[in-house]
Write a protein that binds this DNA or RNA. Sequence first.
DNA 1: ATCCTTACCGCAAACGATTGTTGTTGATAA
DNA 2: TTATCAACAACAATCGTTTGCGGTAAGGAT
Lengths: 337, 337
Amino acid sequence: MKKTTIKDIAVKIGVSPSTISRALSDHPDISDSLKIKIQEIARKLKYRPSAAALHLKRGTNKNIALILPQITSFFYPSVIHGMEEILHQQGYTLIILPTNDLYEREIENIDIALDQNVAGVIIAVSKETNNTDHFVVLQEAAIPIILIDKIIENANITTITIDDFKVSYQMVQHLYKTGCRNIAGIFGKARQSITHQRYNGYAQALRDLNLNILEDQVFFVNSSSDAYQKCDLLLSNYSPDGLYLMTDEIMLGAMPAINKNGLKVPDDISVIAISDGYLAQYMLPRVSHMKHDGYELGNLSAQKIIQYINNKQHNIPINSTEKIMMNTNIVLFESTR
Amino acid sequence: MKKTTIKDIAVKIGVSPSTISRALSDHPDISDSLKIKIQEIARKLKYRPSAAALHLKRGTNKNIALILPQITSFFYPSVIHGMEEILHQQGYTLIILPTNDLYEREIENIDIALDQNVAGVIIAVSKETNNTDHFVVLQEAAIPIILIDKIIENANITTITIDDFKVSYQMVQHLYKTGCRNIAGIFGKARQSITHQRYNGYAQALRDLNLNILEDQVFFVNSSSDAYQKCDLLLSNYSPDGLYLMTDEIMLGAMPAINKNGLKVPDDISVIAISDGYLAQYMLPRVSHMKHDGYELGNLSAQKIIQYINNKQHNIPINSTEKIMMNTNIVLFESTR
DNA sequence: ATCCTTACCGCAAACGATTGTTGTTGATAA
DNA sequence: TTATCAACAACAATCGTTTGCGGTAAGGAT
């Protein structure tokens, strides 16, 4: 049972392939009666246009590449879920290209996206990435790009993130309002933009509240287990009454460390995190958090990339470099008073 | 800067495109001197063969479709990670098609995979899926298929799973050995093959140990929060001394329920789960588990699908219906004695 | 009777690469 | 000198679809 082509339909009713093509795309040169007839046969023969032929003809396909550092995180699967809802409904398909946080691999993946002639690329950069040089090949090929979550600052590329600064600021404010005066923090890898923003928000809030930034009580970690170690270190040497946690991964490591040190939450220490939400509500106790919704991020970035693709098809310039900041909502649980 | 084609190289050195093609694929008809010259120019012009043209010519591409129920689980991201390692290295690319556990969506995704002429399909079926009728279109198109994790039993299709029966059996045995005599269990959705196998292993072990299967203390749940509810219900009405948990999702819901009921683990109750491992070691306390390694599963299924694809290219029949069961190792933590 | 629209539809090139067939050399054997 | 055979490359068809350019017929206007 091989696929029926436009040619099969053509010989079937004795017209040329070009007529079939026009009929199927509702071209005005074809009479209505013929159109109906052709569309009927096409349906009967289960005709599906060849993606390969279209791809070759148009020079692009309906695939979107998602380049990300680690698929095994708590965040990106939700992002993918959110993207997929939009993409599927618009007839696009998602290609996953993990970099394992390697810059080299990121370059490779960009080349792959290019070779595959994807319609658009969405990227969360690796921990090693600190420039945009490798994006120019995409730009030269006029492939729409969007940077999400882990972005490069000051890049001339559209970015979508949460307002990391503001969110962190508000988290510290909240801890303050509930009585905390000695607020420690555990952050992700130091040189990333996302860490930068979040730390700055944290630090600025402390300054604005006339609290000291206790450098010994601020840590930058690389993984859940690293967070566990550092949090353990923190709590065995100091006695903060508030704890800021930058991600789900960090929360996952920090909570057991708190427990290990025999501290009661929130009586001894209040905890607040930036979290996808899922994990936060299953911690013991449940952790108050700013809900950084991966689904929404994915949804929005999919919409954006499609918009850019459509603009390009209508020759609307794609130079529009948007800097989109998403809102987050605070979700309160027992970890704060 | 548009892509250089084979034709560009041809006019550059004044030979025909066919000669370029043959030179690049090391065809004996081309003289060595010419080959070297052509390969050099190709490199200099950064020639990359057009994926679209190859796709059209060959009728297939180097994409693998992964159809799965929920990307937002703890398990599948590791599977993807494991697959990607192999696929990337072999020049294949991964397309993600989530079904949201909908049968209809699964059918759609299979059609998409077909339309895209993927080289192979790897599927974990949805909760709603209980037949293989929708796979025949793939089989008719001679596209290699592998079922993983959530499979259909007795299907004439290669499957890769852990030995769910055996693993569950061993888990109960372990609880027994550590002193448990009243072993409750929380399982996933009732009608799935995976649940079936795991429940059977659990039940058989109990029988072989001359323990009663306490039907009131066995639950089938649909989500983490459902697991929380049912576990709470269980513990407020009964006093099992051992608890079997079928998945990470279930563990995530059950542990807070245990805590809520004021039970000490493992003093009051021992807990063992089937887990990817990551989450289990961050529970409070850490949970002993059979390590169902998503990475390994992904790795193996990627290898298998590539093997099948290669076989097909060499006209080796792909009727080989393998039933592969992966080993798991027990990882002991504080949740059992 | 001739010219011009309008409505329909076919021809053929193009997208980039592969491959069976054919053709042209030059060298060797008869 | 001529037939033979490598060795080497070009030609052209093919994959499925789109699309610019013609081309034909019917009908109306002149």
